[in-house]
């Protein structure tokens, strides 16, 4: 199914929760979704027989300076088609529902986005830092991150 058809299907089902289709310069195109609706949209994308996006290829955090985003790349092994989901988040206290009960593989990637961007995935079964030490301060891939002078007495 083409990106425009997927977008129309989602728009017909979820209405205003589906904001726009970003197809210029993106392959696959991104469907921008409101943060509160991401779990319902994800479940529909996975379970609808015409869509059946059964693989979460990648979940990434993005820092656009004035806001954050989480980008999901989805693929369907059955239909051999792909789509992106994007959720825009405010700079202050970015949070959105987890999708780790839709695609269990989301857990590690959500932990990475939490670790490096400080994006909180509400309802996650295990939201801890995954790469950095547990007592690390701050989220290093944020563009306003200030490097510490030292960590446990070792110069950074």
């Amino acid at each position: 199914m083409e990106a425009q058809a997927i977008f129309d299907t989602l728009k017909g089902k979820f209405g205003d929760a589906v904001v726009e289709l970003q197809s210029e310069g993106f392959s696959p195109a991104f469907v921008v979704v409101a943060p509160a609706a991401v779990k319902e949209v994800s479940r529909f994308l996975k379970e609808d027989p015409d869509l059946s996006f059964d693989v979460l290829m990648c979940l990434s955090g993005v820092d656009y300076k004035e806001k954050f985003a989480v980008a999901y790349h989805l693929h369907s092994l059955k239909h051999r088609h792909a789509i992106g989901l994007k959720v825009m988040l405010p700079r202050e206290n970015p949070s959105l529902p987890t999708v780790d009960d839709v695609w269990p593989a989301a857990n590690f990637q959500e932990r990475e986005a939490f670790d490096l961007y400080g994006i909180v995935f509400e309802g996650s079964k295990d939201l801890r830092r995954i790469l950095l030490p547990e007592d690390w301060e701050g989220h290093p891939l944020r563009k306003d991150y200030k490097y510490p002078d030292s960590y446990h007495g070792i110069k950074v």
Partner: peptide
């Protein structure tokens, strides 16, 4: 780099 030790002789 925020995460790499700049030389193991620091440890």
């Amino acid at each position: 780099s925020y995460c790499v030790v700049k030389g193991v002789d620091l440890i």
